[in-house]
Amino acid sequence: MEIIENTEIDKDTVSSKELESLFSKKYNLLAETAVTLKKTYINKLSVSKSMNIAVRLLDNSIEVYRLDKSSLSKVCRLSGHQQSLTEVVFSTKEDHLLYSSGDGGVKLWDTRTSGLCVQEYKDEERQPHSYTCMDVSCSGRVICAGTETEQNDAYLVFWDQRKAEPLGGYWNSHTEDITQVKFHTDKSETLASGSLDGIINIYNIEEGTEDDALQYTLNVDHAVEKLTWLDHCRLSCATQYNDLQIWDTTTADKLKHYDREKICRSIKRSRADECHVADAYLGADGRPVVLAGSVAGDGGVLRSVRVSTKSNKLEPLTNFAHNKQLVRCAAYDKQRDILVTTGESGLIDVWGGVTDGSDEPDEEAVPKKLHKSLRLSDKRHKPY
């Protein structure tokens, strides 16, 4: 049987005039910077509450920027890392940056000193793990890192941020590489982990044992690519098949499931196999938003759609017409209505929502320096 290759070029399914009308929520490009003149790729992004921005580059360096009104200024560059960096996360003390690496290291850096390592976390009692992902709780107290598969199991390791020695770990919850660990944005005891095994686990790490800590196991059928907490109970999951699921973590119910074909149609593109899901977040109106694009051509197509309140449909929201790269990472600030995107062209783009139909950015949405201290919770956690 002759196999006929699909040579159709991915393209818009509606006219440019219809795109303008359908994607009615406008965002202006407030700031843009190229992290290097060389060809590079940004695949990790962290944005603090005061709009400090950290990105991980292909050469395993980290660059930190500060957004001040409509400009991005470089704070520092952290370089010289031998192993692949797998995650970059700001601590609640916003001048402190955490990262995990493939050589079994989790380190805490002070960005005010041009990159001084102030703490290194390792599991000295066991052979060093290869960490694939990492996160810190909203209280700033607990760090969790996930590992590659070791002897048919993958592990979660925990630390108190103030101490180098681990608190303990969970050893029996995943059978393949852990790709994501995400603490709840408001509840420091709640943790979600996702893996290549197609499983999401929800934990209460205040429980004394792993069995008691495991609250729910969610079967997403495909390898987990990205987890995002939308609100107090809803968790979004983008899979490596570029579909998106939304789960209620208090009942273990799957609330929404959008496959690649449906997302492709919703962003008004013609080829589902070129559709790429960048992320999901909770929009300014409290509705989940899916950020997606096309890998065709230069990857410049980037659009957002939001979940309908009346049906299972995805409604057109924004066409980011000035986007110049295939976006791999995004972070949204709901209070300021600001979206930060990075991707395969090494650009950091900051988008500001337009209000009242104006083409000018909302000046109140542009961040100012925040002068408030963030205290760590006094409550002790026992994730072991």
Score class of each variant (00 low, 15 high):
186 D>A: 11
184 H>P: 04
153 D>F: 07
199 I>V: 15
179 T>W: 04
201 N>R: 05
183 F>C: 02
163 K>N: 08
209 T>M: 13
163 K>L: 14
200 I>W: 02
203 Y>G: 03
155 Y>T: 08
189 E>M: 02
195 S>N: 10
184 H>C: 09
191 L>K: 09
191 L>Q: 08
188 S>N: 08
206 E>F: 05
158 F>R: 01
167 L>H: 09
168 G>Q: 09
196 L>T: 09
162 R>N: 13
179 T>S: 11
157 V>Q: 07
187 K>Q: 09
193 S>A: 13
197 D>M: 12
195 S>V: 14
180 Q>P: 01
160 D>A: 11
175 T>S: 14
209 T>C: 08
182 K>D: 01
206 E>P: 00
192 A>W: 00
156 L>R: 06
210 E>W: 12
188 S>I: 03
206 E>Y: 01
201 N>T: 10
155 Y>H: 12
189 E>N: 09
184 H>S: 10
197 D>V: 11
153 D>C: 11
196 L>S: 07
180 Q>H: 03
189 E>G: 01
210 E>N: 14
197 D>W: 05
161 Q>K: 14
171 W>L: 04
168 G>E: 06
208 G>N: 13
154 A>V: 00
193 S>G: 08
154 A>I: 02
174 H>D: 09
165 E>S: 15
159 W>N: 03
178 I>R: 01
165 E>K: 15
191 L>S: 05
171 W>V: 04
193 S>Q: 04
200 I>H: 03
156 L>G: 01
190 T>I: 14
174 H>E: 02
174 H>S: 10
165 E>T: 14
162 R>W: 05
191 L>C: 08
201 N>V: 06
177 D>K: 06
194 G>N: 05
159 W>S: 03
204 N>K: 14
186 D>R: 08
153 D>L: 13
158 F>E: 01
182 K>G: 01
202 I>K: 02
184 H>V: 03
165 E>P: 04
175 T>I: 14
207 E>K: 15
192 A>D: 05
163 K>W: 00
185 T>L: 07
194 G>Y: 05
202 I>Y: 10
166 P>I: 03
173 S>E: 06
187 K>W: 04
182 K>P: 00
163 K>C: 06
199 I>P: 00
178 I>P: 00
204 N>V: 10
198 G>C: 09
171 W>K: 06
207 E>H: 12
181 V>R: 00
183 F>I: 02
175 T>L: 10
175 T>D: 07
208 G>S: 15
155 Y>D: 04
163 K>P: 00
188 S>L: 06
172 N>R: 14
182 K>V: 07
208 G>W: 09
202 I>H: 08
203 Y>E: 02
160 D>S: 12
184 H>I: 06
195 S>Q: 05
157 V>C: 09
208 G>F: 10
156 L>C: 06
181 V>S: 01
192 A>S: 08
155 Y>N: 10
198 G>A: 15
171 W>N: 06
195 S>T: 14
157 V>L: 08
198 G>W: 08
199 I>A: 04
169 G>D: 10
176 E>R: 11
182 K>W: 01
154 A>L: 02
208 G>D: 11
160 D>C: 13
